[in-house]
């Protein structure tokens, strides 16, 4: 290995000597507040099981009602959170680099409550429900550490939704 010191192009986030994608993912997870309480060797397992995905600006990550089973961490780019209706859509929120969304599906087999659309070219790190639950089965203590920020996020979303509804009422 010592002869080949050129960095691998996927390890763009933290270019180190021949750093592999898993280590790069681990580095990213360590900087996400949602994961901050999880011991590093557990986080490494999540890093190993997570996958990178890319979307072009304008593409949908998933649609409202889909059975998509992944949680997303934005590495670069911005997305819109949208609720789609047959004749119109409501913009609920935006997520940017470093944000973590869709975590609810990690815990239960639910349909998406909203749609996510890439506003710019987008790179995300994803973890699937199955991977997450497999890790949880091995190390149940990390469940609480992850549940907490997810529930806070849900409360925020609901808050915003209620706000949006009351705004609609005011403006007719």
């Amino acid at each position: 290995m010592s002869l080949h010191t050129e960095p691998k192009k996927e390890c763009s986030i933290s270019p180190g000597e021949g750093r592999c994608e898993m280590s790069a993912n681990l580095e990213i997870f360590r900087n996400v507040s949602a994961f901050s309480g999880i011991p590093i060797d557990r986080l490494k397992l999540l890093a190993y099981l997570s996958k990178r995905v890319n979307f072009k600006a304008g593409e949908f990550v998933f649609h409202h009602g889909d059975l998509d089973d992944k949680a997303y961490l934005i590495l670069s780019g911005k997305v819109q959170v949208i609720r789609e209706f047959p004749d119109h859509s409501i913009l609920l929120h935006e997520f940017k680099e470093g944000d973590f969304f869709g975590g609810l599906v990690l815990l239960s087999d639910i349909k998406r409550l909203f749609s996510i659309k890439a506003l710019t070219d987008l790179e995300c790190l994803t973890i699937s429900r199955k991977s997450f639950q497999k890790v949880l089965m091995q190390f149940p203590e990390i469940a609480l550490k992850l549940l907490n920020p997810t529930i806070k996020r849900m409360v925020q979303m609901e808050e915003r939704l209620l706000q949006a509804q009351s705004d609609q009422c005011i403006y007719g």
Binding site: H4, K9, G18, C20, E21, N25, A47
Partner: peptide, 10 residues
């Protein structure tokens, strides 16, 4: 496989 990196030379 993400646990190792492939040097570009290779």
């Amino acid at each position: 496989h993400t646990m190792a990196a492939l040097p570009e030379n290779l």
